[in-house]
Design a protein around this nucleic acid. Structure first.
Length: 856
RNA sequence: GGGCGUAUGGCGCAGCGGUAGCGCGCUUCGUUCACACCGAAGAGGUCACUGGUUCAAACCCAGUUACGCCCACCA
């Protein structure tokens, strides 16, 4: 343990190295440990966002986590035990992708485990080596461990006051157990269900994705005008951007009121290539002014197709497989089998080319394809358009199909406190716009397995309607390696035996349980009762529709309450051109460099200047301002601590008798009240501003004004009462201000605090008005400021030194204002270097000064 | 197309009914006994636009424009 010796300030105090020095101390001393108190009301618990460790941290994260830390430190100083865990979101697709790229491997679940496998030294991302599921998961675990250490080091360097003993990870056995238990309870209550339905499918990663993960992007395409044929050969033209889906066509759809197609509706037509006979049907969702006004309905080209397929009871003609390729088997509804040969096994892109070629050859392409830009759905991390594929998937009810639940969740949104308030709109907009339940299953590997088996009938077909589930006490389970209850392992995959559900839960299905996970649900009842429902849920505003909403869904279902009382939202850090920072744009600012350059306190100061919810442009010059504050704190403290015969033990409110000193403390008293009320409302920026404004005036006016007196140079022996008054006032004000700044600049305030305190400032108590005198008259201080401005102005106008003596000064003003100045006349004479008497002139006018300088 | 937010000195922001504020930057001057990661003084704005309410509007109301975010639109 490094030695901490209280004492006087060093000669040349520095900011360099404070991060390493104090973060090590804090860890040793357990300053941020959560010590279980006796009751819930002594706790402030925070649902920290678990960062995705496979990603990289950027300045936006640093800002957002700092916002939370400021509140955490404030609450801790207010005497609450702060439950401030950190979580790593390390399961799921992002980790898998990182492992694939980092090691140059891919998971092939059919391969056996190779205990001696070592990843290639020089991975070739283009030639990924197939490895077994278990080998793949081992690499995921290996890499996340490394990544997590990097994250932890950065958080410690930034000064986050998290309790590292409360660390959790979304792939840990505990997280798997919690996720599976919550899922089984959802299942038992009918909130989770398995359904065969069309879902958005990512062909790159070969998995289903949820509504919340879908983003729309502009994507170039072509309108193809294609002719279908009535049975007598008359052509019917449709326009499509997806000609390759012609083989999946189920119907042509026109609007019931469309006069052009009245005679066609109800008839049968034939597609131009495959000999598929389909009906022409009417549906109100067909838009008369779009394309040819009559649409080809395929399974599935877009969401309207899904709607028609469902509402018109159309057949399912899926040809695109989970790998994004056209089925190698010729579908049984295709009549012209040889034509399908041209598509078999092809990617969507190649199949489109082949289809267009065939249309051209047969004369069924009318004119040339016309270019267009269309909005297409993508997985948020994907680069190929999503397909719609019908498959078995697990869902959790989220109000998307259930009006009562939707209303209940909207009510939860209204019940919680939003900082800032208007963010609640984003929540209700999202809930109101849901069009389906929450799809939680993923056809991937590194994730929480569904604790589910299915019995196989005599033909080996699984019975999806009666899943086999384990006892909750048996969790966590891996159905792929553990035997279904009531069966023997030899019956796996055998007719009459059982099979495992091979899917894993999406990472959101686990992170949606972060309050349950962190607070000890079903594993630590005492902790659970002390910390849940939590107090504060911080996050950036982009995550409202995902993490924030999903936690509300889960807590509402499982606990019948909100997961926390208050949601606080941070904005983004934008690049200087006001664009969102993103890897693909290459405009991401790496936090380590900026922390290195300006120091953590400076970066934290800048973060705190970004108000809740507000986006903030990244601007390095702003970091310098924070740096300047930290330096100023260091130097002002040095002055106070290094006054002659400085003795912090003797600082006492009783000694403060001088009117200036009392006025300053009365002013500070007001600052404490204001800052505290801002922090209670999570308005950390306003609290900082009010403290900082005071601090600069304190340095520039107050300290300058009382400096001479505080040195006590007049008294040869014992300091005068006025000198003691200044020293006590300086010391008391310093102690209060350091504590006001402690949540923002934890390093420099701790450094200075320990010059005369044994224990950490971060476990000291938040300043209260009661610590400060209320007998002073703050008007004295503002009168003095006016005097200083007049004196300095005269010297500045004369382009001379501030030390230039003042020959004479005439002060006129109302008697009560003059009285203020008369009471502090000796300080005024000292600061202005006045050599003669002051002439006081009473008048009804505002205060005015006439300053005559000594000739040079 | 719907929702939300933002428009204030060169830049970043505060003010949200009573004579325009802060920080950075800029100009001029000063200084080494807390601090050059310093101090002082100063220049700089018809508060996006158009109407309205009011004795009084940057602030309230209606509308317009621009920008940002979210959602819908995907034949």
């Amino acid at each position: 343990m490094t030695d901490v010796t209280p004492g006087i300030a060093p000669d040349r105090p520095q900011l360099e190295g404070l991060e390493d020095k104090w973060s090590a101390h804090w860890a040793d001393e357990g300053i941020y440990s959560f010590n279980r108190p006796s009751s819930r009301d002594q706790v402030f618990s925070i649902d920290t966002p678990p960062p995705t460790v496979s990603g990289s941290l950027h300045v936006g994260h640093v800002f957002s986590y700092t916002h939370t830390d400021v509140i955490a430190r404030y609450k801790r100083m207010c005497g609450l035990e702060v439950f401030y865990p950190m979580g790593w979101d390390d399961n799921g697709l992002p980790t898998e992708r990182r492992v694939q790229n980092y090691y140059g491997v891919r998971c092939d679940a059919t391969l056996p485990y190779d205990p001696d496998f070592t990843p290639p030294a020089n991975p070739d991302p283009k030639k990924q080596i197939p490895i077994s599921r278990r080998n793949f998961i081992e690499l995921c675990e290996e890499l996340t461990t490394v990544d997590e250490k990097v994250f932890e080091n950065l958080w410690r360097h930034l000064g986050l006051s998290v309790d590292w003993d409360q660390l959790y990870a979304t792939i840990s056995p505990t997280a798997i157990r919690i996720s599976q238990a919550a899922f089984l309870r959802n299942l038992a209550r009918g909130e989770a269900y398995l359904d065969y339905a069309p879902t958005m499918w990512d062909v790159t990663d070969s998995t289903a994705v949820a509504q919340a993960e879908i983003v729309d992007k502009e994507h170039p395409g072509f309108y193809h005008r294609v002719s279908f044929h009535q049975l007598d050969g008359t052509p019917v033209y449709i326009e499509t951007t997806r000609p390759e889906l012609l083989v999946s066509v189920c119907a042509l759809i026109a609007h019931p009121n469309d006069e052009r197609y009245q005679n066609l509706i109800g008839s049968t037509v034939c597609d131009p290539l495959f000999g598929i006979e389909i009906p022409v049907l009417a549906h109100h969702a067909a838009e008369m002014d779009k394309g040819a006004g009559i649409a080809m309905c395929c399974t599935f080209g877009d969401k309207t197709d899904v709607q028609w397929w469902r509402e018109l009871n159309l057949p399912t003609r899926t040809v695109i497989g989970r790998d994004g390729r056209f089925s190698r088997e010729t579908p049984q509804w295709v009549v012209n089998k040889d034509r399908y040969e041209q598509l078999s096994g092809k990617t969507i892109f190649s199949a489109r080319e082949a289809t267009v070629t065939m249309l051209r050859e047969t004369g069924n392409l009318d004119g040339e394809p016309k270019p267009t830009m269309r909005n297409v759905s993508f997985y948020e991390r994907g680069d190929k358009p999503l397909e719609i594929v019908a498959s078995n998937q697990w869902y959790i009810r989220n109000g998307g199909k259930d009006e009562d639940l939707r209303q209940a969740l909207l009510a939860r949104g209204a019940e919680m406190t939003w900082v800032p308030e208007y963010m609640q709109h984003r929540f209700s907009d999202w809930v109101n716009g849901l069009n389906g339940d929450w799809l939680i299953s993923r056809q991937r590997f590194f994730g929480v397995p569904f604790p589910i088996w299915y019995s196989l009938d005599a033909d080996g077909n699984p019975d999806f309607t009666n899943p086999i589930i384990p006892e909750e006490s048996a969790l966590p389970v891996d159905p792929m390696s553990e035997t279904a209850p009531g069966y023997t392992e030899s019956q796996r995959e055998q007719p009459g035996g059982f099979t495992a559900d091979k899917d894993v839960m999406d990472t959101w299905a686990t992170s949606s349980l972060s309050p349950q996970l962190a607070c000890g649900w079903i594993r630590d009842e005492e902790l659970w009762n002390l910390t849940f429902p939590m107090d504060m849920a911080p996050q950036a505003h982009d995550i409202i529709r995902t993490w924030l909403f999903s936690r509300v869904v889960r807590a509402n279902a499982e606990n019948g309450c909100l997961p926390w009382a208050t949601a606080t939202l941070s904005g983004f850090v934008m690049d200087p051109d006001r664009k969102k920072m993103s890897k693909s744009q290459g405009n991401v600012v790496v936090p380590t460099e900026i922390l290195e350059k300006y120091g953590s306190d400076a970066v934290r100061w800048r973060a705190a200047m970004a108000r809740p919810g507000a986006d903030s442009p990244f601007d390095e010059t702003q970091m310098k301002v924070g740096r300047r504050l930290a330096t100023k704190i260091l130097n002002a403290s040095k002055l106070v601590l290094n006054l002659p015969e400085s003795d912090p033990e003797s600082w006492s409110l009783d000694q403060v008798t001088n009117p200036v000193d009392l006025a300053m403390l009365a002013d500070l008293r007001q600052v404490v009240t204001t800052a505290t009320s801002f922090l209670e409302k999570y308005e950390y920026t306003d609290a900082l501003e009010v403290a900082e404004r005071f601090f600069w005036t304190f340095c520039d006016d107050y300290i300058e004004f009382v400096k001479e007196r505080s040195y006590g140079q007049d008294s040869a022996g014992t300091p005068s009462a006025d000198t003691l008054s200044a020293r006590s006032a300086l010391g008391i004000a310093l102690g209060v201000q350091l504590r006001l700044f402690a949540p923002y600049c934890p390093f420099v305030t701790e450094e200075v605090w320990r010059w005369w305190n044994i224990t950490s400032i971060h476990r000291s108590s938040w300043p209260t008005p009661a610590e400060l005198s209320d007998s002073g008259d703050p008007a004295v201080l503002s009168t003095i400021s006016q005097a200083l401005i007049a004196i300095r102005g005269a010297k500045s106008a004369a382009k001379t030194s501030m030390k230039t003596p003042v020959d004479s000064m005439i002060i006129s003003g109302k008697p009560e204002v003059l009285a203020h100045l008369k009471s502090v006349e000796s300080d005024l004479r000292a600061v202005s270097h006045l050599t003669a008497e002051i002439s006081w002139t009473e008048s009804d006018n505002d205060l005015s000064f006439e300053v005559h300088l000594a000739s040079p």
